[in-house]
Computed example of a mutant assay.
Amino acid sequence: MNRLFPYPHISVVMPVHNASATLSATVRSILSQSERDFELLLIDDGSTDQSLAIMLRLAAVDDRIRVIAHANCGVAATRNKGVELSHGQLIAFCDADDLWHPEKLKLHRALHRADHNCAASYARIAFIEPEARNALDARTTSTIVNTPLKVTDLLGENPVCTMSNLVVRRAAFERVGGFRAGMSFAEDQEWLARAAFLGLAIRGIDEVLVSYRLSHDGLSVNLERMYAGWRDLATDYADPSGVQAAEAIYCRYLARRALRSGASAATALHYAVRGLRLDARAFLTDAKRGWATLISALVAPFIPRAARIRVFA
């Protein structure tokens, strides 16, 4: 391909750790992009399953794929390594169990071309079951904020939601710095809060461009770790005068996630009650998210788990 810039315009960075069950489908969704000017870096983070073998087979049939392997060091350090080895002017991130809509990279590139002040971009997300094949099987979708994201947006329900949703200008990534090594459950939120704190514009695209696989196994433990990571994050970025309101909204987010993903009813109720106790007004500010979450958490104990997974979103 002839271009003034000698490298692909977009670098897609994917950390991989024991993802053999979903890796091929995720990579296929990236290789099927209508935007063709990209490289895909698959970075194996010390997998003990067949992930590395799958990555090498995929790379053998598409020269846009580069495979890097290193000892396990965590998702933050693995993403940083991918960025370090990448070449694109735009950097897109994808986790090894999510799926992309075919127009994702095209629409993100168009936004960044049209708005040179846009440092990073995200879109809407479809939440799908682990076995789903595409966004058509989604039970619910996320929303975007119509203005550039503020720290308060990111400390609340974080509309970006997953790194599979984020595209960043290289210059912006270099200004913000890499992901905080050692963080596993809030490293993405911490990076976004750091970018917003610096005044960089993070803008949304009002299209569903990512399908996010819900995980029902071990979710309660993950939510606890997410909460612990959030509290560390709030220490650095939350306005002390509004930290209880921000925490209440984040508890609402965790309650909704518990309901959506099939965690125990007690887990959903725990986060809903904690959010109300912290700041009932903040928890109930958004009627759809506030009252609907509270009512759902209250009735969840009386509904079988399988039915909750189908009903709650």
Score class of each variant (00 low, 15 high):
L42V: 04
M226T: 08
D286P: 09
Q89E: 15
A138C: 10
H101F: 10
G204L: 02
V27G: 01
V12E: 05
P102G: 12
K81C: 12
S86I: 05
R133L: 14
L41P: 02
A186R: 08
S296T: 02
D37A: 02
D98N: 15
L23P: 01
P304V: 03
E35F: 06
L214K: 14
A297I: 11
G88E: 08
S20I: 08
M14H: 07
T293C: 07
S215H: 13
D236S: 15
A172H: 07
E224R: 13
S29H: 06
A132W: 07
D45L: 07
D137S: 09
H116A: 13
R274C: 10
I65M: 05
A60E: 15
R203M: 00
P304E: 06
V311F: 09
A282Y: 10
D45Q: 02
S296I: 00
F127E: 02
L31K: 08
Q244K: 14
S11A: 09
K150T: 14
E35L: 09
G74W: 04
L42S: 04
E131L: 11
A234E: 03
R289N: 15
S215P: 03
V27L: 05
L90F: 00
D137G: 06
S51L: 03
D236G: 01
A53K: 14
G82H: 09
R310E: 13
Q244R: 15
D279T: 13
V221D: 11
L23D: 03
L154S: 03
D95I: 12
E35P: 02
H17K: 14
V299H: 10
V13Q: 07
R170S: 05
I10E: 08
S47W: 01
A126R: 06
A282V: 12
A234F: 09
L52E: 13
R169C: 07
A268R: 02
